[in-house]
Design a binder for these strands. Structure first.
Lengths: 343, 343
DNA sequence: TTCTCTACTGTGAACGCTCACAGAAGCATG
DNA sequence: CATGCTTCTGTGAGCGTTCACAGTAGAGAA
């Protein structure tokens, strides 16, 4: 027979209390709360004072009930959650989005949908209107969740270029191809010619574009493209390690290695060390992302910086615009080559 | 003049629609939705069928408005956000809590309160009743946010033992002292006698307990405690590196090192490598946490495993119990020594 | 039969807010 | 002096639920 809840929260003041306190009507308080148009300065001030005195905070549920908006947005990750654990990029993105939204006083709901069941549950939750929009992180292509949400008309911004269907979907991405070009040019400038690549998954635009940049620069420079020097991974550390082992077996004369993510590059360093290759003396290694994995690695990784702070800010901006009725849009942000010890 | 929203979401069915479809009243549908007590099997079935046909999903705002519950809970991090970026433990905890709550169909709101302003904003948000309870991660002691929330009567569960005021607050923690004892015994068993320690911050119980365990075992074993062998850090990689340098300067004959977090241990490895000490030949190194930082490190770290999956599950369990009216409780979970290459 | 009890069902009110509307006041224009 | 326009204010309705209460039907007991 548990009595009152610990601490006993008492009833918070309502808009009615504020109105009485300020000597105005509910309508006036509501108007002040929503931008203050058509409110006299006198009333404006009286209401603000009353709000301060009473400690009033708007009840978002009551508001949402009538506006139909929830004033909250979801951060959806449709990846197996090990990747979330492992990849420092997600942290940065998540925290960046949380902060960008906090500036608009919008809470962020974290949604992890690794399994089929979770995906179904979460899709239903979203399409029921419990969030006004979704920030989607999914390196996978042809993500069924993205498709469903788009069909349901849910405002959506993806991180990274989505596969297929072009203009209809908002996304923010770094310039993968250009970043890859910079890195390969850098490796060439060091005199390396047998440059290997561990690419990302080739069913994702990011994976494809980085590989394309690599091939483009080599061709330009008159270096023959050797398919034995190219393998693909899934951005995990383990796949970087395995891929590098395969490369070493197929092309022992490899003198440089461009790895499509820092995490995979960490794996590559492990494989190279085990094979007795010195980095950067025997093999120069370049990563991609400039995540914390790059500085943690020994030696510290030369890498292509993706501007995650700007990416998250842009994702939020685009999503809010879309919720406000604007059309979907795409933003491509420039990358930057960061030189460290591994090249 | 933007016309209808992209895709055009149409109005979702209400409980009324379901009632009409099922040929019963709103009340009956509501009862089915909330556990199905006092509902005939016939009605039960009719309602469920109607729900399926209409695709009805309960409007949480309307429900919250009347129940006073929000059916959502907050994950609050009152740390500077760099720590969130860097420390893999947070990921694991966050993702574990999200999943544990998903099983109860409760969304999790991510709240990052690194600065004073953010803390104020978020405290107001929470005390206004926008979440039913809070999972708090704060290694800092005497956290003002924790204090305020407790005073406001907000159900709260902390990760890690809080400083001071004992029984009144719920928390879940690993057995720090016991874990430290295991590690130091292990180092002693390797024949090491000059065992250094980089402890955590000494204004946190976790930091204090791990140090206590260290001293306890040494004393038991008849090894004299040398204060030159002890420094403290703040769990960041950088502080582990700096601390280890200090130790090496003060006690060059150190033959083992117990570091109170894996992240700091990574820093320690860097410092040792720079000083030309081989690990584990010259110096055995032990970490704490068994985060992904432990396996990433070279050599892979021997460490004390904190059962983060169980910690997050227990935090959620305790919080839900507390929201249900139960008293705050504490849970201490056992740790486990994980031997790898560094010892 | 009549009463009581249990199992079930329907209904109005309320939660706290916003929105549409009506109306008041002030000022310029015809 | 009426008319219109603009700026401001108050009021009732209603958003989609749950909750308390009243009411019905059927079973069993007196």
């Amino acid at each position: 027979m548990t009595m009152s809840n610990t601490g006993g929260r008492r009833k918070p003041p309502t808009i009615h209390d504020v109105a009485r306190e300020a000597g105005v009507s509910r309508g006036t308080v509501s108007r002040v709360l929503n931008g203050g148009h058509y409110v006299s300065p006198t009333a404006q001030e009286a209401v603000n004072a009353a709000i301060r005195r009473t400690g009033y905070v708007v009840n978002r549920h009551a508001r949402s009930l009538i506006t139909g908006r929830s004033d909250s947005i979801g951060f959806l990750l449709t990846e197996p959650q090990e990747r979330f654990f492992e990849d420092p990029n997600f942290n940065v993105l998540l925290s960046g989005c949380t902060q960008a939204l906090a500036a608009h006083d919008i809470p962020l709901l974290l949604m992890l949908a690794g399994t089929r069941d979770e995906r179904r549950r979460i899709t239903r939750y979203i399409t029921a209107g419990h969030v006004d929009g979704v920030l989607l992180v999914s390196s996978h292509s042809g993500d069924p969740v993205a498709e469903e949400l788009r069909e349901a008309g849910v405002p959506l911004v993806q991180c990274g270029k989505p596969m297929g269907l072009g203009a209809k979907v908002s996304y923010v991405a770094a310039d993968d191809r250009d970043g890859a070009r910079d890195m390969v040019r850098h490796l060439l400038s060091l005199g390396r010619r047998r440059i290997g690549m561990v690419s990302g998954p080739l069913d994702t635009p990011g994976g494809v574009d980085r590989l394309a940049g690599y091939k483009e620069v080599l061709t330009e420079a008159g270096v023959e493209i050797d398919e034995r020097l190219v393998v693909s991974g899934d951005y995990s550390r383990a796949s970087g390690e395995a891929g590098t082992e395969r490369l070493l077996a197929r092309a022992p004369d490899m003198d440089a290695l461009f790895v499509a993510s820092d995490l995979m590059a960490q794996g590559a360093l492990t494989a190279l060390r085990r094979a007795g290759r010195r980095v950067p003396e025997d093999v120069s290694v370049g990563g991609f992302d400039d995540s914390s994995a790059a500085t943690e690695a020994t030696p510290a990784l030369t890498t292509v910086r993706q501007p995650y702070d700007r990416i998250s800010a842009e994702m939020v901006r685009l999503l809010l615009a879309q919720i406000g009725g604007e059309d979907p849009a795409a933003v491509i942000l420039p990358t930057e080559l960061v030189k460290r010890e591994s090249t």
